[in-house]
Simulated scan of single mutants.
Amino acid sequence: MGKRRSSGRVTLQDVANYVGVGIMTVSRVMRTPELVSDKVRQQVQQAVDTLGYEANVQASHLAGHPSTRTTLQDVARHAGVGPMTVSRALREPELVSEASLKKIHQAVAELGYVPHQAAATLASTQLHTVAVLYPFQHDRASNRFIQSLQQSLNNQPFRLIMACHEYHQYGETPLVEKLLQMRPAALVLFSAQLSQKTCKLIESADIVTANIGGAGHLPADITFNIAIGEAAETLTHALLEKGYQRIAFLGAHTDNRLHKQQLNGWHKAMMSHYQNADLMITVPDAPSLEFGRYALCQLLQNQPDLDAVICSHEEIALGVMYECQRRLLKIPYNLAVACLNGSNNCDHTFPVLTSMRLDYEKLGQTVGEKLLMMLDDSPHAVEEDLKFVLHIGDSS
C-alpha cells in the first residue's frame, strides 16, 4: 500500500493511492460494491478508516447517481419510446408525431424530468456513439461484421468506438468500463466471453445492448445466437457420408468457449460414426498459415493414412493446402480439406475449398438496423438463432 499525501483534505485519489488501485475502483466500492471483489473492498474500507476519508455529499449529488435523478432513458421507458425520440421531442418537436409528443410530455411531467444544457450535451453524446467489443483486429469475421455495421449506421449521425477483448473473459470488464465511460447510446458485443461481473456491469449501465454470438446469459435487447458447434458437426457428417473416415481437426483460439464448441461438434459427429476422435491439434494462438502447415506435418507423421482435415479457420485450411502442394499431395484424392467459418475467399482457391459460412455482412447490416429501431421506437427485445450454410467445394 502507498502512503497518504502529506496535506489537504482526504480525497478518493488519496484512498486509491493508499490501496494501490485506480480511483474508478474506489468509486465503485463506494457506489456499487457488489461489482468489486471482497479482497479489494476490505482493502478500500481499511484505507477509508485509516485515512479518515469522508464522502463529499454535495459532489456525490452533482455526480447524479442513476437512482437519485431522472434521466432521459427513464423518460423514454415511461413513455414507451426510444431515447432518440425523447431527445428529438425536446430539441426538435416538429419532427415527432403528436401521439409521441403527448406521451413524452406526460412522462416528463410525471417523472419531474428537467433538461438542462449539461444534460443536453450528455444526451447528444449518448445518441451519437455506438460502442463495439470484438475479438481481434485481424479476425476476418469481426472485420466483416463491423464494416457492415458501420455502413448501416452511416446514414445516421453515429460513430463507432471499439475495443478488442481477445477472448479474455476477465479482461473484458475493464474494457466495458472504458467503453461505457464514453456514454454510448448502445453497446454491441461480438463473440464476447461475458463473465458474471461483466454482465452485471452492462445491466447496470441501462443502455441498448446487442449480444452477437456471446457466451453466458445476458438479457440484451438484441440477441443473435450463432450455432458454431452445430456447424462443425454438420461439416464432419458431410465428410463422413462421403466415405472419409480418418478425419482430423485443427483448431486455433481453442481456449475460449465458442471455438471449444467447434471441437465438440466434430467430436460428436466422429463418435456417432464410431470413428477415431483423437486426431486433433489445437492451440490457443491466433489462426495462421504457419500453424496449418506445421499441424499437417505433425498429423502425417503420426497418421500417414489420414484422409481428411477440418480446420477451425480459413487461414489454417490455406496453410494445409499449401503444405499439400509442397508434398505433391493431390486434394482431395490424397487428402480432403475443409474449414469452418469460411468466406467468399474459399471460392478462389484451387481446388475450391469446402467450408461452412455465415453472412457476417448481412448480420452487421441487420444489427445496425435493429439498433436504430431500438433507439428510436423502443420495440420489444429481439432474439434469433443463426446457422451456418455448407458450401461443398472440390477440396472434398
Rank of each mutant, 00 (worst) to 15 (best):
I207Q: 03
A215H: 10
R183C: 11
Q126M: 14
A205S: 15
V130F: 04
H138K: 11
Y113L: 04
L133E: 01
L194R: 00
Q193D: 08
F158G: 04
Q126F: 00
E177A: 13
I146P: 09
R159T: 14
L189F: 06
H138Y: 10
C199S: 12
V132S: 10
P135C: 11
G214Y: 00
M182S: 15
P135I: 10
Y167L: 09
S148P: 10
E172D: 08
L194F: 02
D206R: 15
A120V: 03
V130G: 02
N155S: 14
Y113K: 09
K178G: 05
A119Y: 01
Q137A: 13
D139G: 15
L189T: 03
L175Y: 11
Q196R: 05
E172T: 05
Q156I: 01
S148E: 08
R144P: 00
Q137T: 12
A205Q: 02
I161T: 14
I161R: 12
T121R: 14
E172N: 04
G213L: 03
D221I: 02
F136G: 05
Q147K: 11
A220E: 06
S148L: 03
G213E: 07
Y113A: 07
V114D: 00
Y134I: 03
R144I: 11
N211Y: 05
A119L: 08
Y134G: 03
I146T: 13
E172S: 04
A220W: 04
A119T: 06
R183H: 15
A220D: 07
Q137Y: 06
R140S: 13
S195M: 00
H138C: 01
A163G: 14
M162W: 01
H168P: 00
K178M: 12
Y134K: 08
A220I: 05
V208M: 08
P115T: 04
M182N: 14
